[in-house]
């Protein structure tokens, strides 16, 4: 199909972009999700504002925070030595986001704002308590990751707000991460994926983050599972209880690739695997 007619505006400044959004435009960044939707006429904006040339790119460490410009290409973030050193879970998760050709064009902010419930980055940012910066007509505001994802393809961004950067508090240097993703083919969207970050002191878990993609209308944190883990050594019994608690946190749906019950079960399997990877066992 061919897209329905729309006007195209290339934003030269963030203010121009926000102004266009306020008049009903949709933002085009890397185009990896929006363009297929336009072509299928699932989205029919009157105006598309191209934000891809705005200077919202780059990755830097600001004290104990990793700051990612929203328009940083996925591939640039993936190959950034700063990301790999500071937040290795994010670097590894990025290798699962589509294929390289998609990552060359797609942007970090685009993936977040698109808010596919099975996407990797929203879950990773949720796991790491990232903060999203949005710019609207009234100025700038910050939204915590836990408040950001509202439903499938729905976020806390107002229609006239543009995501400008993502701030990720650095995990402590002793934190270890684990990631387990199940997809039908390599680099497909996940059926279910689990992302963990764990800090151990003398083999006992002092801090744990577990986020799940593809098993609920939004990425979710398995808070009860995290709580079960804190203060425990990772014995098989603890692992089994944590995995079941993570599965209990899900609210999956059936689709053509897998029934809901399978996604729930896989959450437990993948939680075990991701935690085992994190603690190296």
């Amino acid at each position: 199909m061919k897209a329905a007619r729309f006007d195209y505006v290339r934003a030269t400044t963030v203010d121009v972009a926000v102004d266009a959004l306020a008049r009903g435009a949709v933002a085009l960044a890397g185009g990896q999700s929006l363009v297929p939707l336009l072509n299928a006429r699932s989205r029919r904006p009157e105006v598309v504002v191209d934000v891809s040339r705005l200077p919202l790119t780059g990755v830097e460490q600001d004290g104990s925070t990793l700051v990612l410009g929203a328009l940083t290409r996925l591939r640039a973030a993936e190959t950034s030595p700063v990301v790999r050193r500071a937040v290795p879970l994010l670097a590894e998760a990025l290798t699962h986001v589509g294929h390289v050709s998609v990552r060359n064009r797609g942007t970090v902010g685009g993936s977040v704002a698109h808010a596919d419930p099975a996407a990797e980055l929203p879950a990773v940012f949720l796991a790491l308590d990232a903060v999203f910066t949005a710019r609207g007509p009234g100025g700038t505001r910050e939204v915590d990751a836990r408040d950001f994802f509202l439903g499938p393809y729905r976020t806390a961004l107002a229609p006239d707000e543009l995501l400008t950067d993502i701030r990720v508090p650095l995990p402590p240097p002793t934190a270890r991460h684990g990631l387990a993703e199940l997809s039908r083919r390599p680099n497909d969207l996940a059926i279910t994926a689990v992302f963990t970050s764990v800090t151990l002191t003398d083999r006992v878990v002092t801090e744990a983050r577990i986020a799940v993609a593809g098993a609920a209308p939004t990425p979710i944190r398995a808070h009860a599972a995290e709580e079960l883990l804190r203060g425990q050594a990772l014995t098989p019994e603890v692992l089994a209880g944590v995995a079941d608690a993570a599965a209990d946190a899900t609210d999956p749906v059936d689709d053509v690739h897998a029934p809901a019950a399978y996604r729930r079960d896989m959450t437990a399997v993948l939680t075990r695997r991701a935690l085992r990877q994190a603690v190296g066992g």
Binding site: R184, R185, P186, D188, L189, V256, H257
Partner: peptide, 11 residues
């Protein structure tokens, strides 16, 4: 092709 999965080089 998001729902109908063809074999890719990876499989």
């Amino acid at each position: 092709f998001a729902e109908y999965l063809l074999p890719t080089a990876g499989v």
